[in-house]
């Protein structure tokens, strides 16, 4: 098989593309089911995300007046493309990343932000005032969690001495679990992931009771389906990253499943425990506690590294 063929396959089928989308739907189902069980309900059936996705694809797409139609139609595509691309640099399903190079951690994190950026743009593109407020909130939240999340993922990178996800993962696999040595980093990364995915209690950007559905209020049909799918995909990728860095790596598919599902359980529990934070409370939380704590931990790490203490 030629190198090109292999690239295309890994991009479209495994570990990128279809496989990640399927995993995204399964993880979305598990998340919804877990939350439902925490709320003493039965919850959705196993094929629910798939049915939702197909139904949305088959629905009429209303293009509202007073917008940029090209932007309106292509933003969801760009969003999901970003999310899928980032899957290529992450050890999905416990197999080696399809591609890796020095510094791909930074690239991956920015690829993951594309979805949020697109959501914000999509909201700002529409003349609906709920969308506009939603877009403002989305971007505000992006700026609040992004830095702490980034710093939290840098912790393992500094420990491993590399910016290559594959190398960090190997380091994490061969060493004791990093969440023991960097508990703050682990917590911030996990909660930052919840902020990134706009899960409760960080769902102010799409708070149903305040601004309907936030930035995506005007989206129907295909666009909405792609945004939703993109978010599920990011859920899997984010969980994989956190598991790979902090839970001693994802060396094989079995470990991958156990570790990411364990994290998902924690995330689902956190989702059902709290009341929604106001956007100003979210920003305050991240910058006053999250970022400061992670920075402190990073400084300690760097200092230890400088003095040659083995971590």
């Amino acid at each position: 098989m030629s190198e090109n063929m292999k690239s295309i396959l890994s991009l479209l089928i495994f570990p990128g593309g279809l496989a990640v989308m399927a995993a995204g739907m399964i993880y979305e189902y598990i998340d919804r089911k877990l939350v439902a069980r925490f709320q003493n309900r039965v919850g959705p059936r196993w094929f629910q995300p798939l049915a939702d996705f197909i139904k949305l694809l088959a629905k009429e797409e209303v293009i509202p007046e007073g917008i940029h139609p090209v932007l309106f139609q292509w933003l969801p595509v760009v969003a999901i493309a970003g999310a899928l691309t980032s899957a290529l640099y992450v050890p999905m399903f416990g197999v080696e990343p399809a591609f890796h190079f020095t510094g791909d951690l930074v690239v991956t994190i920015y690829l993951l932000s594309i979805l949020t950026l697109c959501t914000g743009l999509a909201g700002a593109n529409v003349a609906n005032r709920f969308s506009i407020i939603g877009a403002t909130r989305t971007l505000t939240q992006l700026f609040s969690y992004e830095a702490p999340f980034l710093l939290a993922l840098f912790g393992p990178a500094i420990a491993a001495g590399s910016w290559d996800i594959a190398v960090i993962e190997q380091y994490a696999t061969s060493h004791p679990w990093l969440m023991v040595f960097q508990p703050i980093g682990f917590l911030v990364a996990l909660i930052g992931l919840m902020g990134k995915l706009e899960l409760p209690p960080f769902d102010a950007p799409e708070a149903e009771t305040e601004i309907v559905s936030g930035a995506l209020t005007e989206y129907s049909g295909r666009g909405y389906a792609l945004f939703r799918l993109g978010r599920s995909v990011e859920l899997v990728i984010g969980l994989t990253l956190v598991a790979a860095f902090y839970l001693g790596g994802v060396a094989n598919p079995l470990l991958f499943l156990a570790k990411t599902l364990g994290l998902l359980l924690i995330i689902a529990a956190l989702q059902s425990l709290f009341a929604r934070l106001r956007i100003d409370q979210t920003v305050g939380l991240w910058w006053r506690s999250g970022a400061v704590l992670v920075l402190l931990q990073l400084l300690v790490l760097i200092a230890l590294k400088y003095f040659g203490v083995a971590i």
Binding site: F38, N40, R41, V42, L273, F274
Partner: peptide, 22 residues
């Protein structure tokens, strides 16, 4: 306190759902 409902959600998780399967 933060997360006062933790006991309840764990209990619900292991309990049978309150749902009737109408």
């Amino acid at each position: 306190k933060i997360g006062s409902l933790i006991g309840d959600i764990l209990k619900s998780f292991f309990k049978k759902p309150a749902t009737i399967l109408y």
